[in-house]
Design a protein around this nucleic acid. Sequence first.
RNA 1: CGGGGCGUAGCGCAGUUAGGUUUAGCGCGCAGCGUUCGGGACGCUGAGGUCGGAGGUUCGAAUCCUCUCGCCCCGACCA
Length: 566
Amino acid sequence: MRVSRLFGKTLREVPTEAETVSHQLLLRAGMIQQLSAGVYSYLPLAWRALRKIEQVIREEMDAAGGQELRMPVLQPFEMWEESGRDLAFGKGLFTLRDRRDRRLALGPTHEEVITDLARRNVRSYRDVPLMLYQMQTKFRDEPRPRGGLVRVREFTMKDLYSFDADEDGLDLSYQKMLQAYKNIYARCGLNAVAVEADSGAIGGKDSHEFMVIAETGEDEIIYCGTCDYAANSEKATSAKIRPEEEPLLPLEEVATPGAKTIEEVANFLDVSRSHTLKAVFYSADGELVFVTIRGDLEVNEIKLKNTLKCTDLRLANDDEVQEAGLVAGAASPVGLSGIKVIADDSITLGQNFVVGANKPDTHLKNANYPRDFNVDIMTDIALTLAGDRCPRCERTLLSTRGIEVGHIFKLGTVFSQRQEACFLDQEGNQKPLIMGCYGIGIGRLLAAAIEQNHDEKGIIWPVPVAPYHIYLCALGTDNPEVASAAEKLYAELEQNGFEVLFDDRAESAGVKFNDADLLGMPVRIVVSQRTLKSSSVELKLRSEKEVESIPIEALNNRLKLQLGPG
RNA sequence: CGGGGCGUAGCGCAGUUAGGUUUAGCGCGCAGCGUUCGGGACGCUGAGGUCGGAGGUUCGAAUCCUCUCGCCCCGACCA
């Protein structure tokens, strides 16, 4: 491709709307163009890179036993009602009506459709294990698109779905995908780590996310500096420390005028925060619930939402709290009735807690579970923070930010049961298929690759995803000798199977070099009067500082060494 | 949806506070000619704007008022 003919102009200045590095570079390189919030056109350079990423993914999916197919974007809305996920996705689901006024949804993901395909086509245990995948456009009406290609409303996703006869089969499929994903990231020049994750609207049990460490990432990762524990902060747990055992003391009412927050109460009574129980009120699908947790911890709303199995969760407002007869600032489960109480298991770690007395300006000392109160649900709903203890080795946890470039789930029978996708096992029993699903956002992967592979001058493409291998730079094109030598070299390189971006423009050296750096092809070759004097060209790797002079006849072999056979 | 910011030429901006010499400017980029030519060269000439949109106030609106649309950033959601 000739730069003089390439569609998409490089920009000298950074467009103001871009804040993340990948967004800035994609815009400056003339690779993407925004149409509206979270909706982009991919210009030729970006499109080539995206296709290369797809090809890497396709190869790994096929190698793991996947079969590529293609499902529709346009899906009957009833299918989403059948699975109940019209509510789980809520406004995130793009919907429309056809001419007969039938409601349709633009697919945000394809579990419903694939499950339907499976129930029509899988009959026997002989038909599994089965892995089906596609590269396809997803639509999600995200509340807030951001970061260029990091979070958009229309994007291409590779989604693979596995079907197995039993849990062991699922484990095997899951492991295959885990490995395939690691291969993909490594081939795309990405350092991605697998972390434990919440399964969100997709549903299911085990789940891992692949994170690319980046300051601009949307997710917080909690990880152990000592062992290999790593999890999304939504999912992370910690070893909650149990204080020294003390004898159980009798309940005692104390006046705590003006003290409402945990901080104030703890200070007033001169006890540590971990010696108090906090009360928080939530509205879960309209029902008021009482949440209690040890005073030194915070509630993780994702865990709470999963525990309550509700779709809408928010902090209750003052009116709702008053209406329920709760005393904000002095509430506790002691003596409480008629309201659902959810407790974090931290309340079993410790004794003689200070809790609210359910009357203004009054607290109780020495509350103990279960002696003094009961709860409806006891589980882990605590937010894990950097500085907490690792759940595996009890060393200190650390945190960092990351971009989620892939997510894999063990779905189990969530979908196959709801949609009755069954098979006959060896004994002739009808059983639901055991499913898994595995997704990668292609554009996001591209953005992450740039986040991790750039310098102040521009992109530094890893070879497998580079739009072109070589940036061929002709300096002094008005010199016929240079021009014809460059043309000849361009033709030869392409003949030898290299993908070449040929800068044939009548621009100054500075302009060409800066564009070469910005566009970031792995190899830059310069042809000029100077190099021709010694029948050579100059070769520079984008990732290195040094330039080397190569005799033209040796160039082909040198490039093969660098880029692999063309 | 809550909070913050912004819409003036392809990109980056000034002008808006105090309405009128602004037929709306500047830099980059773009077109033509000439000189340059190994890290974003220079000169001359030129094209390009219904100042996001609609209403209103006024003799007069980019500037004031009302409504509206769009975009970015921070939070609640996800590949």
